[in-house]
Write a protein that binds this DNA or RNA. Structure first.
Lengths: 203, 203
DNA sequence: TCCTTTCTGTAGTGATCAATACATAAAATG
DNA sequence: CATTTTATGTATTGATCACTACAGAAAGGA
């Protein structure tokens, strides 16, 4: 049972990667269909046949982003031996990912769609859920640190997770404003300066 | 030499305040002229006669935002007796301003226009310059602390300023995601947890 | 009263938006 | 070869975008 009909003349994955780049650079609403079809080197009917809609294309682009850029950031958490090392590497990988040359600076998940007002509600909600899920990842790594005996049971894991997630969110803005890798690394280090205090007392 | 011609039928400042609310909530590109004229309760020709263009209206809305919301945040810096107290209050005022009830959460300067791609380059540039100017305000307060003898001369004021600016940027995203005042206050406190370390050593 | 000046509301401008109708092209199947 | 199926390119859809032409209304000045 091979494929019937005229074969697709473009590579779906490559086109999706091009679309991801456009969304990353311009955001969901800022990326017009003309921008997307130009970058993907296909016509609008081919885009709709392959991806369904602009919103669906964006959601698949987010998956590509997570699999390529995001995984580098978030695999630092479970791989590290300690929560402290995990958070340190998480922030450093964020600094690296947000300042790559020949790539849009900052994060697609943070910058992709902030104002879900006109037709982009579902996309905005998707990204917000991703960000909230990221807070959960950070909190769970802290809770693991508590279970391991690395951190005291009095630490408020949710509060600490929200702080480091907020720092990461801010790094997207700062990266878009032109911050260098060195500057982002310094911010990552600065965020870790409070680690001992944050993970020793409850408040 | 009083005013000639038919008098304006609406209050310019009130209409501008309404426009500022729309831009704050929906962003520059997300706010359509229909949104603006609806909120301002005027017709398009009146808007253009009074403000010139959508971009010019936005720039004036930013001034209104700075004068009302921003001043509450930034006057904390010079008013405090010490840099530490100034930064603490700066972050706490930020948490308050970003989680006001019956107001859009987060900051117009941060969330108003991030992707300056299609006709919004000038607006995007304006906001970026504002954010960079904010970093300068923070750095100058630290330098004042060095002159006062509060902070050692070895402290890298630019690095510390960029860190706290990044935290503030991130609080806009976190606030938009639904964070409570309490959560933002906790993040403000968490950011201050590293103060002593950041302002004692050079790196 | 008449003229000038400025504002207001209606009704549009061309451009661009996301999304498609349709005819044709290219493959497998019979 | 004929049929079916799917993809492609051209051209276009109605909606919405920021913006404005125009005529009438409301004021001051002569």
């Amino acid at each position: 049972m091979s494929q019937r009909g005229r074969p697709r003349a473009f590579n779906r994955d490559e086109a999706l990667a091009c679309a991801m780049q456009v969304f990353w650079k311009k955001g969901y609403e800022g990326a017009s269909l003309a921008d997307l079809t130009d970058a993907m080197a296909i016509n609008a009917p081919s885009l709709y046949a392959a991806f369904g809609s602009k919103a669906e294309l964006f959601k698949q682009a987010v998956e590509v982003y997570q699999a390529n850029v995001g995984v580098q950031i978030w695999e630092a958490l479970p791989q590290a031996a300690t929560a402290r090392e995990g958070f340190t590497n998480f922030l450093k990988e964020t600094a690296l990912a947000y300042s790559q040359v020949d790539q849009p600076h900052g994060c697609l998940i943070v910058l992709g769609a902030l104002h879900g007002e006109q037709g982009s509600e579902s996309v905005c909600t998707l990204l917000r859920e991703q960000r909230l899920a990221n807070v959960t990842k950070l909190r769970e790594r802290l809770e693991q640190g508590v279970r391991d005996g690395e951190l005291p049971t009095t630490v408020d894991c949710q509060q600490v997770a929200e702080f480091y997630a907020t720092v990461q969110h801010g790094m997207s803005i700062t990266a878009r404003d032109g911050a260098s890798l060195e500057a982002l690394m310094n911010t990552a280090n600065a965020a870790m300066a409070g680690w001992d205090t944050l993970t020793s007392q409850g408040t």
